[in-house]
């Protein structure tokens, strides 16, 4: 059966409060832009899941179509597309990222490790 890539993406976005589509892994990012996003998210103290698109060519193209966004990394919070590296950096610098994640994790029992 053909792989339902859009459904796979939809489901993983729904399942994870914070999900990053990136090149490499948080421990070994393979691209400066992905590394910058990991840094910003780590700074919030909240956990986040990741998908290494370098290991999945079909998903690499699939996520671009899904988000209508041509580049990687891409960040989803609470099922909603937040943007790529530039936007995440801006949100981090302005404090909006922290607020966004405080809100996303409010009442979830998970707290920032600070």
């Amino acid at each position: 059966m053909a792989r339902e890539i859009m459904k796979e993406i939809h489901d993983e976005i729904a399942k994870n409060k914070v999900l990053v589509y990136m090149k490499g892994t948080p421990s070994f990012p393979m691209c400066g832009f992905s590394a910058a996003v990991v840094e910003a998210l780590r700074d919030t103290g909240y956990p986040f899941a990741h998908v290494n698109i370098l290991e999945d060519q079909e998903k690499r193209e699939g996520i671009k179509a899904f988000s209508n966004w041509p580049t990687i990394p891409q960040i989803y919070v609470d099922g909603k597309f937040v943007g790529g590296c530039d936007i995440l950096r801006e949100l981090h610098a302005s404090g909006e990222l922290q607020q966004m994640l405080d809100k996303a994790f409010a009442g979830s029992g998970e707290s920032a490790k600070a």
Partner: peptide
């Protein structure tokens, strides 16, 4: 918003983004 602004830029550049 931020996302729509970047999409406008990407749309202008079209195929070159790929």
């Amino acid at each position: 918003d931020r996302i729509a602004r970047q999409r406008a830029v990407y749309a202008a550049l079209g195929d070159a983004m790929r």
